[in-house]
């Protein structure tokens, strides 16, 4: 890790103005990540992430992947090449990339921010998301992936948690996005 690119607490203040508003704009969300030092974004879209992906594409920051395990591995290679990577995915994709997160990122100490859309949140979603929606946080606990759920009112603390945990632990950390927290197309 280039130490100049170390995530810092001070940098995250750009998310400040959005705190307390009803929804976080995807522009502010992406800016806060860039301020922390993230400079490689990949993933597979989800409806909940559509606003963020659109912002990333507009800013030419996004490398689309075809599967979430591929996205995680791209992030790992980018980290080896000096980048600070983030991977966007739905929690369905979390299932797809679990082995890669455990046997590559955790094993080799490759940090990576997982921005995970929480489909099936409180059971109010399409049936295919039901089990993962219920099990996700305990699944993450079981496989020792630190996680935190973003909220409009604690965004500042949430982002400084990301910055700290990511580099201290050098493991994948997950920031969970419930519906309606970051503006996008809602399912």
């Amino acid at each position: 890790m280039r130490d100049s690119a170390r995530p810092t607490d001070e940098a995250v203040s750009s998310i400040g103005p959005v705190v307390g508003k009803r929804m976080i704009e995807s522009d502010a969300f992406v800016q806060a990540l860039e301020d922390i030092g993230f400079d490689f974004f990949t993933g597979v879209p989800d409806l909940l992430l559509a606003g963020i992906v659109e912002t990333l594409l507009t800013r030419r920051l996004y490398t689309p992947a075809v599967r979430e395990d591929e996205a995680a591995a791209l992030a790992s290679g980018a980290y080896l090449g000096g980048k600070v990577p983030a991977v966007l995915m739905s929690n369905a994709g979390l299932g797809t990339c679990l082995n890669t997160l455990l046997s590559l990122h955790q094993l080799y100490r490759h940090p990576c921010l997982l921005i995970v859309a929480w489909r099936g949140f409180e059971g109010r979603d399409a049936p295919e998301h039901r089990t993962m929606g219920q099990a996700m946080t305990s699944l993450l606990d079981t496989v020792r992936i630190p996680h935190r759920t973003l909220s409009e009112t604690t965004a500042l603390e949430d982002f400084s948690w990301v910055a700290k945990t990511f580099m201290q632990e050098r493991v994948p950390v997950a920031l969970l996005l419930k519906p309606g927290v970051v503006r996008g197309l809602q399912p």
Binding site: A72, A75, L80, T100, L104
Partner: peptide, 16 residues
């Protein structure tokens, strides 16, 4: 580990 992912790791590195 991560069988099947060597090319994706290499690709991420090549882009970086």
């Amino acid at each position: 580990g991560s069988m099947g992912m060597a090319a994706a790791i290499g690709l991420g590195l090549a882009l970086a």
